[in-house]
Design a protein around this nucleic acid. Sequence first.
DNA 1: GAGAACTCATAAATTACATCA
DNA 2: TTTGATGTAATTTATGAGTTC
Length: 156
Amino acid sequence: MNRLPWSEDDEELCHGGSAPPRKKLRLTREQSRLLEDSFRQNHTLNPKQKEALAKHLMLRPRQIEVWFQNRRARSKLKQTEMECEYLKRWFGSLTEQNHRLHREVEELRAMKVAPSTVTSTSSLTMCPRCERVTTAASPSMAASAKKALPLKEREH
DNA sequence: GAGAACTCATAAATTACATCA
DNA sequence: TTTGATGTAATTTATGAGTTC
């Protein structure tokens, strides 16, 4: 299978001399697959599990431990990247929404300046919860705002 | 009970090697 | 063949929790 060319005992023998060059093991596909399976079940191992896995994969327990440490780090990094992407998209949609609202404010101001063009009251609706008056002409905005917010913040 | 000293486990940061385009 | 980029195994360092005295 796939073991380091020297054992821990070898390293002890080397004391006094120069340390052996750090050799890097490449895990086989099968070893990686089993480690991934194990990681999916549990992100940490107890000593017994570690020992068993090491025996099964013909690796040292320390190598299993290191693999799990690195795997947790990779997993966390990926999670952070995903969250970052999500926040970027959210920020983008909020910016877009903000622009639309600014435009609408400008339109409403323009209407105020020219009262003859004011929307008839029948086209205005009032939100029963926040008691704000909105035009019925902009339901899409409400929908897009809803889309942009995460679930727990959609509560109006 | 409070706290210093120690051990152990884990995360985070870094290094170094293998592989590939 | 060389080289730079990339992935990742391995090492080092920092930190927190638990235990003992």
